[in-house]
Amino acid sequence: MDVFVFYAAAAITLLGASMVLVLANPLRAAMALILSLGALSVIYVLLHAQFVAVMQLLVYAGAIIVLFVFVIMLLNLEDPKTRRSWPWVAGVFTIIGGLSYGLARGLMVDDNQFITSGPPHVNALSKDYGTVEQVGREIMTTFVLPFEMLSVLLLVAVVGAVVISKKRL
């Protein structure tokens, strides 16, 4: 069951991403992006990352995409003359497929340092794996300094966004 859902979600993710790439209208592209990222959050759940999955929905669908849509509607954007033809699209997706398969194979070669260095793969996960408690504890202990710095970053981003988009600089 899990495996089937995974492949289904993966297919939807790729479909949404591809639509972002090819759809001419930015508003439609934004909707396709929601589709892609939503499917991705399903994959996160399957990979036992419930907290990340929820955050994915909240942050992306709830905040970022809404921001995109607002901007699109604010500026009343039309997609400017996208040069698109079906051979071109086919060529692009051939490249994507070839590259993904090749790279994945290349990464999985046994003596490759990307994979072999690091802890061994496990067959069982702890009971609280991926829960809010576990991730939250990690954030509040080991990563507390980056966490605080993140708040500063967000503050700067907020102020910067306001200043930049002001009518008169």
Binding site: L47, H48, A49, F51, V52, M55, Q56, V59, Y60, A63, I64, L67, F68, V71, G118, P119, P120, H121, V122, A124, L125, S126, Y129, G130, Q134, V135, E138, I139, T142, F143, P146, F147, L150, L153, L154, V156, A157, V158, G160, A161, V162, I164, S165
Partner: peptide, 30 residues
């Protein structure tokens, strides 16, 4: 990879990535 190795650290990092992505989107759109 966090799941394969049975440690939650990767999930924590992905949380940070999301926050940075939010900041980036805000400034980029501005």
């Amino acid at each position: 990879f966090a799941e394969r190795w049975g440690v939650a650290r990767g999930q924590t990092i992905s949380f940070f990535v999301m926050a940075v992505a939010a900041a980036e989107a805000a400034v980029g759109l501005a």
